[in-house]
Design a protein around this nucleic acid. Sequence first.
DNA 1: ACCTGAACACCGTTCAAGT
DNA 2: ACCTGAACACCGTTCAAGT
Lengths: 233, 233
Amino acid sequence: MVTRAEPGLQPRLPLSRERVLRAAIKIADSSGLESLTMRRLADELGAEAMSLYYHVASKEDLLDGIADAVVAEINDVVGTIGVPSAGAGWKTAVRQRILSARQVLLRHPWAPRVLETRTSTSLAVLLYYDGLLRLMRDGGFSYDLIHHALHALGSRALGFTQEMFDPSAGTSNEETAAALESMADQIPHLVAMFMEVAHDDPDSTLGWCDDQTEFEFGLDIILDGLGKMRETP
Amino acid sequence: MVTRAEPGLQPRLPLSRERVLRAAIKIADSSGLESLTMRRLADELGAEAMSLYYHVASKEDLLDGIADAVVAEINDVVGTIGVPSAGAGWKTAVRQRILSARQVLLRHPWAPRVLETRTSTSLAVLLYYDGLLRLMRDGGFSYDLIHHALHALGSRALGFTQEMFDPSAGTSNEETAAALESMADQIPHLVAMFMEVAHDDPDSTLGWCDDQTEFEFGLDIILDGLGKMRETP
DNA sequence: ACCTGAACACCGTTCAAGT
DNA sequence: ACCTGAACACCGTTCAAGT
């Protein structure tokens, strides 16, 4: 019996996490999130469903991966936007970044839904917010106001709402602080904001946001803004 | 052979759409949306999964039903809030209604996710918006500004974002207009708003919203509001 | 190291059948 | 009119086995 070499057909590319994620995004983009099944994904790659598990721990891990990839795409686009010198330019810069993020998300309509259901915040998301934070800091905002601002922007900032930076119940303030400081070189402005809040109010938990307060803050900005636009004020 | 009467056990309540929906909400509230399966739901009701299909057309129909029930709950709560006489009271009234809606949604954390995925807008949702619209109209807003306002409030108004009143591709303006007018007694302010826009701009589709414009409108309200709050303006 | 086939425990749903 | 059991076509995933 002779082992037959694959006749003429190009030998299939080996799988890789990279290729798997790329194919998953392609399916979600073109056929919708509900079409993204492990079996369909394997088909797309000319492999068997079970082979995927060598490159991806689970479907959740796959979703983590494609969510991350989309935010990375946003960060790439946003990275090409110039940063204004400190001062009044913050508003157009923040505006431009957010509108660019929106453009990317319009190409991946499933992404907000996937981002919303992630249980851990990805570094890419933190990097995105760190960029916004830097712009606002340079524009003269206090960390406290920036914190409110991120809540007020909410789903507009990244196309989805999520209790931001909500530390998992099991980790203490000290652990969170340590984890954060280890990332200080990557997300310096976020870390600085956290540290300042922790310093000002040592008893606050680092996942300190009072959701009700933040909701009302954002709501009132909008209501006040609308009120000023009325014809009969 | 003798048909044995159920021994002592209370004869099970007959199922009904009402009971099915109530049980479904109970499961989603206590165990999360992912625990809401047809089999689990039947269990909860002491019946077989297949029996549910006599009261509910499909799982999608079940989800439509529980989404509707939650919004109905919101409308009940909101209905007890007094309506201010025309004038300056609009802001606190709108504020109060939105905060009340939020309170209800906090009891059903799965609801925004379900509402977001509904393909048709329920009457309950239209009624909720009609109420907000009335308040703003009485408060001196033009229909045009109210329309922008609803977009700007976005997910804050009802806990979820959705391309609002997005008419299905198949229906013409005439059909939509006719459908709307037939509801004029139930949602008079919404209908009036649509009619005015249709009159001012006959070429516009009734699902006329320019999403990019609306996104920027809402974004700019927030950015302007934040700008005014800076310490160094 | 990488990939696979058979199998398992789940889904939503159809359909013919029971009272 | 209301409910059910068996069955089907799907899921994600485990596990032992192949190269």
